[in-house]
Write a protein that binds this DNA or RNA. Structure first.
Lengths: 238, 238
DNA sequence: CGAAGGGTTGATCAATTTCAATCGCGGTGG
DNA sequence: CCACCGCGATTGAAATTGATCAACCCTTCG
């Protein structure tokens, strides 16, 4: 069985067969989630480190007004905060976007893995650095890009991440995003997202179907977004 | 001499006198920076961990169009990414906003400190969790809050952080923010920031002077922003 | 068949940006 | 001491972006 978590970490470091076996054991019993099902909610006690093995998920926060803001997408291989267990409770929620399998690695197991295996610790820290760079890139997008640039930039990011993590074997890159999810991620209304997507479709940059977006012309998207891929697969020291 | 970095970490954990001495030695020779002077630039080779001891600084990114987006404010005690040294080069810049003193802790020194002293490591990880929560809160603000709510929310955040870090001994809380810096942080134009600040001043929430904002009525700001302070001083496990 | 959850479209409204001037403090050099 | 300069602050008017409101459609699924 392919393990997307181990595959992702191995793009950062080399593991020994023993380490791979331990990581496999730690992610051996994932839970299944349906689309729109919460994995953990704001205010819940923190516990294990969650790792998405299959499917997509997101982090989000609900405002008093009832509107939602998505702050991150997680695809196979991605994990929630490493040290989240140091805090008493969650300050945001996580939810599945597609049918998903998510492993819950107990805090003690994760601590032990990282303490005894420097390569595991190093890989986790690198993953976290990329996650933080991604948060910063989102802030830049929301602050200084027009709506069409924002949409294009997010699609570039997700397309590239999907590629880097080997989620997509072939050329076809289908992102499982409804227009409503896109609106919640980009701080726009579904109506306006719809019109921006129409423009992008008419420009030949993508194809649309219910609940999915197919990236058709990455060059065009990159150009519209002013996308600089550097922050996602940054060169590593030593 | 008061060391704001040690003071901040001590709000998370207890240190032994020996640990305090080591941290003091590590931050003993800070560099001075003038307002608008860069501490490190996007593209520079990564090196030491920077710690702001006095004054304010920010992280920012310049877009191809020349506009700037600030992604974080650093006040005395705050540090840049712990593991940044694992990457070859910076993906964003840092710059002083006021006259500042910034210590550069060599990567090896920091690694040793954290490996040999679990309490230092724990404090640094907690600080990083709060930083990440702050990034998420910014995304929520930029995505789903109106301009006056955004401004009020940021001022609440900075006011509370200044208090938590003991930057402000007395009631007076003067934030060293020009309207241009505020605009770059919130993704708005200086013109619009100016009008929003006028409204807030007329509501009695704050006072303005060139390059500074004095918070006058926190209750009013909190109410306008819908501010939930939980993410900044979250309860810690164990 | 009915209901739910997207998606699509048009018309109108409101929030922000853009453009263009002007003001004024504070530091600098003559 | 005074004139000048640079940067930030302020104001008004016009232009633009994106939100809001209101239907309506379509597909899926029980």
């Amino acid at each position: 069985m392919h393990n997307s978590f181990i595959a992702k970490l191995q793009s950062f470091v080399e593991f020994s067969p023993g380490e791979i076996a331990m990581l496999e054991r730690a992610t051996a019993m994932p839970m299944r989630y349906r689309p729109r099902q919460d994995i953990i909610r704001e205010g819940d006690k923190t516990g294990p480190v969650f790792v998405v093995l299959e499917g997509w998920a997101c982090r989000y926060k609900i405002l008093p007004s009832g509107t939602r803001q998505i702050t991150a997408f997680l695809m196979p291989g991605d994990a929630c905060d490493l040290h989240i267990g140091m805090l008493e409770e969650m300050d945001h929620s996580m939810q599945a976007l597609t049918p998903a399998r998510v492993a819950a690695i107990p805090r003690g197991t994760m601590d032990r893995l990282m303490r005894d295996h420097a390569s595991v610790a190093r890989a986790m820290y690198l993953a976290q650095l990329v996650d933080e760079a991604t948060l910063r890139a989102w802030i830049v997008s929301m602050g200084r890009r027009s709506s069409i640039e924002r949409v294009a930039h997010l699609l570039c990011e997700l397309y590239l991440r999907a590629h880097l993590q080997g989620v997509v074997a072939d050329e076809l890159v289908e992102l499982p995003l409804s227009q409503i999810v896109l609106a919640d991620a980009l701080g726009m209304t579904p109506v306006h997202i719809n019109r921006v997507l129409r423009d992008l479709r008419e420009a030949g940059a993508l194809q649309l179907s219910r609940g999915r977006i197919v990236v058709a012309d990455t060059g065009k998207l990159v150009q519209i977004a002013g996308f600089d891929e550097n922050y996602l697969h940054r060169r590593i020291n030593r």
